[in-house]
Design a protein around this nucleic acid. Structure first.
Lengths: 204, 204
DNA sequence: TGTTTTACTGAACAGTGTTCAGTAAATTTG
DNA sequence: CAAATTTACTGAACACTGTTCAGTAAAACA
């Protein structure tokens, strides 16, 4: 069965080529700025061919989002090793914000772009950022268990942590700091201070 | 000069008709889901006519954003009267989140949609949410001045407040709470708790 | 060798934002 | 009042977009 295996391999290679090219363009130009025709031209196939591998633009976009989430989770690789849960939470926040500020378009695609998310089943979505959510949940749980923070309601902490880091990131990515008379570098410094400040306040 | 005045009035009426129809559609269908041809059809004019009143779709969208910001600021009308700065800040946050949760598409258009914002000069942007920013700045300043909060760095407080409320709102609008196993009503309750919690922690 | 399956494409459809020559009516001018 | 000009608008076109589908070569199988 060597032939059919080779064919299978070739198909997967083409699918990967589509995905990689699409990723590059989505990240550079955003969702609206990326056209399937351009992707097709870059990989030297007809636009129709893409439809043999992806149902439509949103199905392709969904896989792009997954790739973005994988990259995000990968940026946690040094954080997961940290012993102290509160320090782990702190580094997690910093890693999260830093990664997204450095990859603003990925952040857009993951959290800010709207339409296609709703088109997929809840389970599909779950799987996407399931790991990231789980990591946060476990770390918060450890912090409470080891009596490192004053707030004992796990959900409250999770929402505050997520809300604050997410909000500060949006502030950076959308350049809202400009309206406050800050440069990007200044704002980035303040963001870090905010996050450390918050953790210092909730620590026991 | 009654005639030219009438003409001027008619022109403004048509411009308003375009804006109102566009607002309705932008809020219902989002930026991408709104087409100038449909707007034109609704007001019973040719698509080309819109271009006599707005340079392009983004110029129209810019005015829509201003309308959204006006609505947002209007939702503060009962908050501004509050005497105690810290209580004013609290109600401000609640009003902000409530308004945006009830008008998620406006929130999208104001803060989450990306492309056209960058196309306008900084001063134009400033003017848009200038009042909202100013209101937050003044309230925070009062809180510090009257020694109501422990943190004395004005910018830190402003960023934390904005970041947290913005982040919690994004969490609601983008339904991230679903990934945490919460219903919308539950999440909305938690959000409020988070915000009150935060303020209780920074109060002196 | 003939048949079927596979992988792909060209052309078309319906939609988009945008431009511009042209037009009919209203206004101003001679 | 008639002619010239300005005003407000439009139809048609251009260059795009996502998407579909009949058709086609080549490869695999019988």
């Amino acid at each position: 069965m060597g032939i059919s295996e080779r064919k299978e391999r070739e198909k997967e290679e083409l699918k990967k080529a589509i995905l990689d090219t699409a990723f590059e363009m989505f990240v550079k130009e955003g969702y609206a700025g990326t056209s399937l025709r351009e992707i097709a031209k870059k990989i030297e196939y007809s636009p129709a061919t893409i439809y043999l591998y992806y149902k439509d633009k949103d199905a392709l976009f969904f896989d792009i989002q997954i790739k973005c989430f994988k990259d995000l989770i990968h940026s946690y690789r040094n954080v997961v090793k940290i012993e102290n849960p509160l320090e782990k939470l702190r580094q997690m926040g910093h890693a999260y914000m830093k990664h997204n500020i450095n990859n603003p378009q990925c952040f857009n695609l993951m959290f800010l772009h709207d339409s296609p998310l709703g088109a997929f089943k809840r389970e599909d979505r779950m799987e996407k950022y399931g790991n990231a959510i789980g990591f946060l949940r476990e770390t918060v749980k450890e912090c409470i268990k080891e009596n490192l923070i004053t707030e004992k309601n796990e959900m409250i902490v999770r929402l505050e942590v997520w809300g604050l880091t997410q909000g500060l990131t949006v502030l950076m990515v959308r350049k809202s700091y400009e309206g406050m008379g800050l440069t990007k570098a200044e704002a980035e410094n303040y963001i870090k201070l905010c996050w450390d400040n918050y953790l210092d306040r909730i620590r026991v």
